[in-house]
Amino acid sequence: MALQDKYQELITAATASAVNNLQVREQDGVLYIDGEAPDGKTKDMLWAVYDKLDPNFLSGDLVMNINVAVSAPVTRAKVTTERSNLNIRKGPGTDQPIVGKAAHHEVVTVVSQSSDLWWLIRTADGEEGYAYAQYLTPES
C-alpha cells in the first residue's frame, strides 16, 4: 500500500480526468497503473505528475501503461522519427528483415494496430510491413 500512497496524487489525477478502465495494482513491490486516457493531453499531464512525484522516473517502482483512446480506428499516421527514415520490417521485431523504409514525416496508411508496439503500415509506394509504433503519430 505504501506505493499507492507515494503515487496517490497520480491515481487521484487519473481518476479525476476520467481515465477509462483505470486499474491500479501492486505486485511484488511494483505499482502498475493501466488505463485509457480520453486524449493525448491527459496522458501527457499524467506523465508530468509522475515525473514530479518520481523525478526522471528513476525509482523503477511504477509501470504506467496509459493509452490514448481512439474514437475511430487510426488509418493514417505520420512518421515522427527524429530525422531518419523508419524501417518497415517483415514481422514485428528488429530481428525481422527490413522490407522497406518510410521517409521522415511521410504519412502512411495504418493497416493494423494489432500490438501496442508494432503497427502494420503501408506506404504510398505500396511497401507494407511492421514499423515501431513509437515513431508513428496518428493523423486525424
Binding site: Q27, D28, G29, V30, Y32, W47, D51, N56, F57, L58, S59, G60, D61, V63, M64, N65, D116, L117, Q134
Partner: peptide
C-alpha cells in the same frame, strides 16, 4: 537525454516488466 528517456519509459512501460533497476542510468 531527458526528452528521449520520457518517451522511452512510456514505451518500456508497455512491456509490463517487474519494474526497473535504474541505478546505472544517468539522465
Amino acid at each position: 537525454a531527458k526528452a528521449k528517456w520520457a518517451m522511452l519509459k512510456q514505451t518500456l512501460d508497455k512491456l509490463k516488466s517487474k519494474g526497473y533497476d535504474l541505478t546505472g542510468l544517468t539522465i
